[in-house]
Amino acid sequence: MAVIEVSRVSKRFKTYDRKEGVWGGIQNLFRRNPREVKAVDDVSFTVDAGEMVGYIGANGAGKSTTIKMLTGILVPSSGSIRANGYVPYRDRHQYTRGIGVVFGQRTQLWWDIAVVESFQLLKRIYDVSDRTFEEQLEVFDAVLNLKPLLYTPVRKLSLGERMRCDLAAAFLHRPRIVFLDEPTIGLDVVAKENIRQFLKRINAELQVTVVLTTHDLSDIEELCRRVLIIDRGHLLFDGSLEGLRERFECKSQIVFELREPGQVDFGRLGFNSTVEFQQLDALRCQAVFDKKQVASAELIKAIVNSLAVRDVMLDDTTIEEIVREIYSRGEVVTR
């Protein structure tokens, strides 16, 4: 069942060009040049209840604008959005009661007061009952280890600690949909892992629908079955992570290390037409191939059998490389 339906949505902005320097500044006093920018252009997708979807794109690709439209902050210039049974911008008051939002760059907690006081305030704003409140805090504490942070003012928290609190705040009122804009930005490995565990668990246990944007593709790899890729306002890909891999994972590479230094005769391996070999230095060699043509197991077998090797490493194309590839091609792929 679709909980979010986005249909042919576009968003256009007007910006003003400013001139530089002293004379330009004086000119700006009297004249401004408007210019129209299409931040999101004819985007359609649906998200089912309980799904966890990754929404990725470069800076300025239109990610944040989409999230802002989905959360009711912005009105689409054209097209329609329905989420949780509401039109977000129109039914803002009822709609916001059922969603949670985290902007990674900005906290929604009150800066100078203790975390628990912010939670208390949110509890009142969202009419959360005492029981639910206590229960939720228990759940959050179990995964996010929140208790030690509760009595600290937000401004004294580290970025990772703050993000844990912000996530808890977003889930406090048991929203049906949660939007996370760059939830792991600027965090260290441990903090990232913490947050991913939390999201996995809460998504599985509470059936919350999660839409998350990120720069860090390992977030997507760990959390999302499905990705949406947006670039310059256009939706470039909508499909499963496997589908993305299958479609774009053309080149894989194997790097192997010899026992003794020496010149290798790659012809003996018998893959001359399909694999591109290269000797990197006296000990290390590289084989680049297409997985659709060559099974990596076969190739590894041939290498191990024919050469005296100490070590073999298989290196798949990362999602990051695929995305870069997609951006450079500008190809539209939909499921």
């Binding site: 009711g72 803002r92 009822q94 916001t96 009661r97 902007f103 900005r106 009150w110 704003i125 969202y126």
Partner: peptide, 21 residues
């Protein structure tokens, strides 16, 4: 500074929030 986004995400009158923060 973009704080108004946060205001818009809460189910309270936006002016109420701005004045009483």
């Amino acid at each position: 500074e973009g704080r108004f986004d946060q205001i818009m995400l809460r189910p309270l009158h936006s002016l109420f929030q701005v004045i009483f923060e």
